[in-house]
């Protein structure tokens, strides 16, 4: 029995996750309202907990990270199709759903970003937080914005458009 080269073994490990298989066929897209809501709630709660700082900073980070991991699945299997796809057709309806979802999400993300840009320095100034903690809070805020980027458009698309029965009449 010949030993597999390292690169082949790494390929096998990657294939075990099932993720490469997702690229070979169009994904089955679902509304994913619940998952998007859970990701958003976890992200918001996590971000709020990190703002207290000190000992709860890492607890908040853990909750935020859980929300981030969940939100990562939303673009892959949610109702919004990507701008460029080699496996699925993105027609005019999909483009409209996507455009309206991001038009709704971007002002919300902008508002959150401005709150962070203003609020974090004010927090550091008022409470004399250590610089390392403020750097960490900046990173957590960026993660929260990414959660918003994934979750808010998905929520808009899934609530705005009731899915049509796929079974033909």
């Amino acid at each position: 029995m010949t030993a597999k080269p390292l690169t082949e073994r790494l390929d096998d490990i990657a294939n075990l996750t099932g993720i490469p298989a997702l690229t070979t066929r169009p994904p089955k897209r679902r509304p994913l309202r619940g998952l998007a809501l859970v990701a958003l709630v976890l992200g918001t709660v996590g971000m709020a907990v990190t703002l207290f700082g000190g000992r709860v900073l890492l607890i908040g980070d853990g909750i935020l990270l859980a929300g981030f991991v969940l939100s990562g699945w939303l673009p892959l299997m949610g109702p919004i199709k990507p701008w460029m796809s080699f496996t699925e057709r993105v027609d005019e309806l999909d483009a409209q759903i996507r455009a309206k979802a991001y038009l709704t999400a971007l002002p919300i993300i902008l508002f959150a970003a401005v709150c962070g840009l203003v609020g974090l320095p004010v927090l550091a100034w008022l409470q004399h937080r250590p610089p390392a903690e403020m750097v960490a809070l900046g990173g957590f805020a960026a993660m929260y914005l990414l959660i918003l980027w994934n979750a808010v458009p998905t929520l808009h698309a899934s609530w705005r458009h009731q899915p049509v029965e796929e079974l033909d009449d």
Binding site: R89, D91, E92, L93, D94, H161, Q162, P163, V164, E165, E166, D168
Partner: peptide, 13 residues
């Protein structure tokens, strides 16, 4: 287009 699009059209959505 996708079959879903025809469905949305017929529903008037």
């Amino acid at each position: 287009v996708n079959p879903q699009t025809i469905g949305y059209l017929e529903r008037g959505d």
